[in-house]
Design a protein around this nucleic acid. Structure first.
Length: 301
DNA sequence: GTTGAGCGTT
């Protein structure tokens, strides 16, 4: 006669949970998945060989290894993709932890001489610390400088020092400030899709997919044609998307800006969120997202 | 072919 329940755990050392068996002694995979979402099978340690063995699975039905399930603890199998997803979430949270509140931002450089090039900027700012990005903004048609640009440093300390003083560059006094895009971050919204602003034309969908994979499973990349300097990237997990919103990321040497995909208007859901959390709510929601990522890391190791 | 406060081809 079969057991009424078998013991199942996520890990051999975890507290097992009792899962009901069917009248014929089998266990439905759906019964396991009801307690362990995403489960695709079971395994157990063979007491004789001390090796892990898989439980026979036929069309959603798990069959006892011997005549019955015995007193073993069965361990849940998850698809490889699921495991990879967890690793990616760890990677995303690791990025957050590493950066903490000391992360650097792009700085706008105002008052550049018309003749100043990116090489000039890099040469100048490298005297303060390691530079990871410089840009001189130019007129698309003429190529003339617009008299301002952007710089980003590796070290937060360098950024602080650079903001705190004026700069004589090629004979003119220039100022470095945090750009406006940093001052008012976009309102949060629970979307799996992010808007990637300031893309360049040489960024392919493959480039973007390859880059964003490090944060989580990417389910779609969309680049409008003709070229419009932005793209959309969709993740499998909205928490990964949300965690990236507001970031300036460097892809192929270019600083792109991440924000929520949907525009602020024509979205009633977002209006509701804004009403509930108020104007300053975005900060707390982002902390909340980070907290969720850390919590998962705690649970899944 | 110019210019001199600003904010990065949404």
């Amino acid at each position: 006669m079969s057991e009424l329940y078998i013991r199942v755990a996520e890990d051999e050392n975890e507290e097992p949970m009792e899962i009901p068996s069917e009248d014929d002694g089998t266990v439905l995979l759906s019964s396991v998945a009801a307690q362990f979402p995403g489960a695709c099978g079971l395994r157990y340690r063979n007491p004789e060989s001390q090796c892990m063995r898989g439980v026979r699975l036929v069309e959603g039905v798990l069959h006892a290894p011997e005549s019955d399930w015995g007193n073993l603890v069965y361990v849940v199998n998850y698809p490889k993709d699921n495991k990879r997803k967890m690793d990616e979430i760890d990677a995303a949270s690791a990025v957050k932890i590493k950066r903490g509140f000391q992360k650097t931002s792009d700085l706008i450089v105002l008052g550049l001489p018309w003749k100043t090039t990116e090489q000039d900027l890099k040469d100048y700012f490298t005297t303060f610390g390691e530079v990871i990005m410089v840009q001189v903004k130019r007129d698309a048609k003429t190529g003339n400088s617009k008299g301002f640009g952007f710089v980003r440093f590796t070290e937060y300390e360098t950024q602080t020092k650079v903001i705190g003083q004026r700069h004589m560059i090629d004979g003119r006094w220039c100022d470095c400030k945090l750009p406006n895009s940093k001052a008012c971050p976009d309102e949060p919204m629970r979307s799996r899709k992010i808007f990637v602003g300031r893309c360049t034309e040489d960024m392919t969908t493959d480039d973007l997919r390859q880059y964003f994979m490090q944060y989580g499973e990417v389910t779609d990349v969309f680049i409008p044609k003709p070229f419009r300097a932005f793209a959309f990237v969709t993740f499998a997990d909205d928490q990964v998307a949300q965690a990236l919103c507001g970031e300036d990321l460097i892809i192929k040497g270019i600083s792109v800006h991440i924000s929520n995909a949907e525009p602020k208007h024509n979205n009633s859901r977002q209006m509701m969120d804004r009403g509930r959390f108020g104007a300053g709510g975005s900060y707390y929601l982002r902390i909340h997202c980070l907290f969720i990522l850390l919590h998962r890391k705690f649970i899944y190791g």
